[in-house]
Amino acid sequence: MSLLLAPFMLRAALAALGVALAAAPLGAFVVWRRMAYFGDAISHGAMLGVALALAASLPVFWGVLAVTLVLALAVAALAGRGVPVDTLLGVAAHGALALGLVAVSFVPGVRIDLMAYLFGDVLAVGGADLALIWAGAALLLGLAAWRWRALLLSAVDEDLAIASGLSPRRERLTLMLALALLVAFSLKVVGALLVSALLILPAAAARPLARGPGWMVAAAMAIGAASALGGLALAALADSPAAPSIVSLAALAFLLTHGLASLRHRGDCQRGQ
C-alpha cells in the first residue's frame, strides 16, 4: 500500500487528474458534434510530432503541439471540399500515425521507448511535466467556460448561431485548436493511441446521467477523475499498464451507466403498460 503514497504515484495521480478534468468539456463537445474521428486524427498525429521533435532535438511537447496544430488546421480547411469528412479523418489519423512510426525509426542515435509514446508513461511524470499539464488544463477549462454558450449554440445548430451573430466556424476552430493542445500536454500521461479514448469515453458514459449539458460535463469530469485514480491504483497494486487500466475503467463506466439506463427504461415501459 505504501506504493500508493510514493512521490511518483502522487505526481502520476495529479497528472492523470489534470488530463481527465481538462478532457471532460472537450470530450462532451466531441461527442455532441460527432467529432470522435477528429480526436483520433489529431492524437495519432502526435506520433509524427514526436519523431520531428526527436530529430530536431526539441522538447517533445513543442514538436507534438506544432504537428497537431497543423493537422487541426489542415483538416478544418479541407473539410467540406469534396472528400467526405470521416474518410478524410481516417486518412489523416492513420497516415499521420504510420508516417510518425516510420519517421521515428529513422531518428539516429537515440533508442526510444515507442510504448511510452503510444500508451503514455504516467508513472515517470516529473515536476515540469506536471506544471505543463496543469497550466494546459487551466487554460482549456478557462477557454471552455469563457466560450461555453457560444460553443454550445454552435453545437446545437450552426444556422441559429449565425442568426444570433456568432461565428460557428470560429467556435469549431477554437475547439480543434483546444484539442491539439490537449493532445500535446497529455501525451506523457495516456499516449498517442489512448488520448482520444480519454476524451470520448467519460463524456459518453456521462450521457445517461445528465439532464443538461453542464451536468454532462460535470459527470464526465467525475467519471474521468475516478477512472484516472482507479486505473493508477490498479497499476500500482496489480502491476497492470497504467493508461490502458484508466481507459478500461472508463469503458466499464460507460457499460454501467448505459446498462442501468436501459434497465430503468425497460422498467418504465413495463410500469407504463
Binding site: W32, A155, V156, D157, R207, P213, W215, M216
Partner: peptide, 10 residues
C-alpha cells in the same frame, strides 16, 4: 434543429 441526441438539453 441539427441537435444530436447525445446532448441533454432542456
Amino acid at each position: 434543429l441539427a441537435l444530436d441526441a447525445s446532448m441533454p438539453l432542456k
